[in-house]
Design a protein around this nucleic acid. Structure first.
Lengths: 290, 290
DNA sequence: GTTCCGCATGAATCGATAG
DNA sequence: ACTATCGATTCATGCGGAA
């Protein structure tokens, strides 16, 4: 196993990003705090102020991303007074004005979305995965996500429509081998831009905003062995954990000590630079000579 | 079987909509020509001019829709020079300024999307279904679209967990037994806002922009027997056909004679008013006294 | 060792009540 | 009138203990 660096930084993304080198990261994938959510930890950004809050951060992201890299943003707008708020739409438009290209919008379909019943809407079971780039040319390793083994294949098999699921259930009685053979027969199919993945809820040791399969899919798709991955809102460390497992270098920034501790404790062999994390020698930049 | 009216109108939506009464329609569901497509019918609207083209139409739609009605817009932005164009986002923002409320965005996941392979993107297998309303109160018949529930319900009913009991105890006034009775015999759950529907291919003579299951779902959700449904871009008649089958009155407008003919021939017992379709007596409004 | 089943929990939203 | 808090609603998932 090759050695990779897994930098975990405790601090505010707006400050810590400034220490990173220009064009030094191959993939940015993150799930920033949504408007008004996680108010007790991240301060609860107001919907109307969301774009204004995010633009200085995305400006730094634009600087540190390599021209061949991609930026994947997991976000969803909040419902305010019965209406979907437009701050995510406004953000997309603002990011384009900042210099980003809005390449694609993937859909993350969460089957186990938050329950509830309301008179005017159903459960919201999807989120946006916005892909931005610096130019029209970027690295994409499509073959890496059609590997028929591993979590992705299992997820694809497990998460089908209700109709398919019923068929699957009825198939279970007649033997599991039938399912496997069906998958193997289709091993040349590329995926589409709708990802079916369940959230990992609190029954695990740590609660993460997205399941490991999600960053894994994009890491495989947009990076190769030894590349650098950045998550400026690391949370409990999902992105860094997956990056290390896939043999990619990574930098994770987390503002909240509690989450930072969870990330640090759950990631084996992480090479942390406490002098950077402590902010004592702010001039030093990473990643260099790790 | 009750008699319903199925008006099919040959003409330009911008003109024909003016003949409809104020607040006379319960549901508008349509799939307008996307930018740059159907160039020979509506002149191939350029992406940059799309909002400007659509607003006069949506203004009429706002007028003819009942306060309790919904407007469901099936639309998808085009990829221009490697980027997703923002005209759909711009349209949402513009429609809000016009007075519409952006209530919800449903995702239509097309399981059998058009195959293809590109160096920088996967198959686009989803489309937006934007729901707009005139106010926060509107008709919604959620029970009409319930789906089979997972088998968890059976086990859940056997024994209620401690948490369930605690949650039940916190309910104001309602007795414990009353709550349990709500679940007994129930095998239907409410759906979420991601719709999994395959496109209809092959076996039909005409190509429809959406499968019958799609308007059917929204017609069941937002209208009741005898309500009025409008599709200003009818195409080959899918919306009108489904509306008639579900015993709803409907008005369909189509500009292209070829599609109009297909719709007319494929819909049995349709009560057309040729003098309106021909535009000779433009003053007459429908639906009245049908 | 398997399979089965109980069980807690979650980027939520609405409407009523209170300040 | 306007904002803040709170209770009610609801279902897929995966862990862990039991069969």
């Amino acid at each position: 196993m090759r050695k990779v660096a897994t930098e975990l930084i405790l601090g505010d993304a707006r400050e810590q990003l400034q220490k990173l080198d220009d064009a030094s990261v191959d993939l940015i994938i993150t799930s920033p705090p949504y408007a008004d959510s996680r108010a007790n930890t991240y301060g609860g950004i107001k919907p109307d102020a969301y774009v204004e809050w995010f633009l200085p951060i995305s400006k730094e992201l634009l600087r540190v991303l390599k021209p061949s890299g991609s930026f994947v943003l997991n976000i969803k707008e909040k419902v305010v007074r019965g209406e979907r708020h437009t701050y995510v739409l406004d953000l997309i438009i603002a990011l384009r004005q900042q210099g980003w290209l809005w390449t694609e919008e993937y859909i993350w379909h969460k089957k186990n979305s938050f329950p509830g019943k309301w008179p005017n809407r159903f459960r919201d079971s999807w989120e946006r995965l916005l892909q931005f780039n610096k130019g029209k040319e970027f690295n994409m390793y499509q073959d890496a996500v059609r590997v028929p083994m591993g979590d992705w294949a299992k997820t694809r098999l497990k998460n089908l429509s209700e109709t398919d699921k019923r068929r699957d259930n009825s198939r279970v009685g007649s033997g599991f081998g039938k399912n496997v053979s069906k998958w193997i027969g289709r091993d040349l199919a590329y995926p589409d831009n709708v990802l079916h993945m369940a959230t990992e809820t609190g029954n695990k040791n740590h609660s993460a905003v997205f399941p490991e399969a999600l960053p894994e899919w994009f890491i495989r798709l947009f990076t190769k062995d030894g590349d650098w991955i950045l998550d400026p809102f690391l949370g409990s460390g999902t992105t860094s954990r997956v990056a290390q497992r896939l043999n990619r270098n990574s930098i994770g920034i987390e503002i909240l000590e509690e989450y930072y501790a969870i990330a640090k404790n759950s990631i084996p062999q992480s090479y942390e630079k406490s002098h950077i994390a402590g902010g004592k020698e702010g001039k030093e930049k990473i990643p260099v000579n790790v």
